[in-house]
Every structure is written in structure tokens, then in C-alpha cells.
Write a protein that binds this DNA or RNA. Structure first.
Length: 185
DNA sequence: TAAGTGATACGC
DNA sequence: CGTATCACTTAC
């Protein structure tokens, strides 16, 4: 078994966001290893997409999105929450997939039904910004899982990006309709 | 429904 | 420099 290969992330962020549903996020902490199944994602697609941070251009914050695919883009929002993204599209072409919700490891009572909650629960922070997610020995990696069939796929507009005008209506949010861990709102 | 929280980006 | 804004969450 190997992590999802770099080629998986070189694609358009929209199909990658769809395909990431069901994949396993693996967090290797000093304390131990946590595995969580991804159940909700959102695609942020290039400089034209006004909801995408890359619309601001290449800055210190957005730089990871311009880098090689299969790496983490983690940033602080509202002074309190760290959000985890996976960089997609080839180097030089900015795009990312936001991980919005995961199913927590069944043995642990964790709240992972929101992008800020899951990073807090799993101990993911800015220290992991730019981390390669395709390496076997990475502290953070993505592995194949049981995918979500079309019959159980939820699709809708992205959350919290009303400022982006028409771009806010794009159906670039995906979720597993069977999961109780999808974020509310 | 609104406040909390601090890095970021941009204007002066 | 100052300050508006923000891919969220939780408690009124």
C-alpha cells in the first residue's frame, strides 16, 4: 500500500476534490497515528476564481498554492482556526482543495465536522504548511480509501465565500451524503 | 445573531 | 505606520 501518488494531485482541483472523498488522511504525531476518512471537500481553482486566495496573486501566504501538487497549504483564519488544503494542478498554476470534514477515528470522541474543528482535533497546524503529503514517512499523508459512489454524492456551492460574487455559486463543494460528519450550515 | 482572534494585505 | 478583512466556531 502506498499514499496517493503525486499524479493524482496534478489534475484540476474540481475532480480532485470529488475523488478525495473517501480517502484517508493519516496524521503521525509523537503520541501516535490517527487515520480519518475524508467526507467533505471544496475546490479553489486558480487566479480567476475570486473565492480562491490565489486571486490576490502570489504572496507570502498564497505561495504554497503556486508550488508543486500533493503538498499542504495550511493557513490561519479569524485568528483562531487553521485550515488544511491540498495543493493541486502543476507547479506555477495555483489551486487547492480544502478539507472541510472527516470521520474521526472510531475509537476517539473527536469533533471533526468542520474545517477548523478537524485540524484542531487532529493536531494539524501551520507547522505542516508546505508538507509533502505523498511520502510514506510524512507526518501528514493521504491514502486511498473506499470511494463515494455517485448515488451518495452531495454537490453544492462553497461555504463562506459570498464575497466572491458569481464564483460563490459554482458547485465546487462535495460531500458524502451518508456521513453524519459533514459540516452544518 | 454576533463576537472573538491575529495574520495578512493594502493604503497612507 | 494604521486598519479592514477573513475558505470559522461557539455561545447568546
Amino acid at each position: 500500500m502506498t499514499p496517493l501518488p503525486r499524479a493524482f494531485f496534478e489534475d484540476d482541483p474540481v475532480p480532485v476534490a470529488r475523488a478525495l472523498l473517501g480517502a484517508t488522511l493519516v496524521v503521525s504525531q509523537p503520541a501516535g497515528i490517527l487515520r480519518a476518512r475524508i467526507v467533505e471537500t471544496e475546490a479553489y481553482r486558480g487566479k480567476e476564481d475570486l473565492a480562491c486566495h490565489a486571486a490576490k496573486g502570489r504572496t507570502a501566504r498564497t505561495d504554497p498554492m503556486f508550488g508543486p501538487p500533493g503538498h499542504a497549504y495550511v493557513y490561519l483564519i479569524y485568528g483562531m482556526y487553521e485550515l488544511l488544503n491540498v495543493v493541486t494542478w502543476p507547479e506555477g498554476r495555483p489551486a487547492a482543495v480544502l478539507i472541510r470534514a472527516v470521520e474521526p477515528p472510531s475509537t476517539l470522541a473527536l469533533r471533526t465536522d468542520g474545517p477548523g474543528k478537524l485540524t484542531r482535533a487532529l493536531g494539524i497546524g501551520r507547522a505542516l504548511n508546505r508538507q509533502d503529503l505523498c511520502a510514506v514517512d510524512s507526518p501528514l499523508s493521504l491514502w486511498p480509501g473506499e470511494s463515494v459512489p455517485d448515488a451518495h454524492l452531495g454537490v453544492g456551492p462553497r461555504i463562506g465565500v459570498d464575497y466572491a460574487g458569481e464564483w460563490a455559486t459554482r458547485p465546487w463543494r462535495f460531500w458524502d451524503a451518508r456521513s453524519k460528519w459533514v459540516s452544518r450550515r
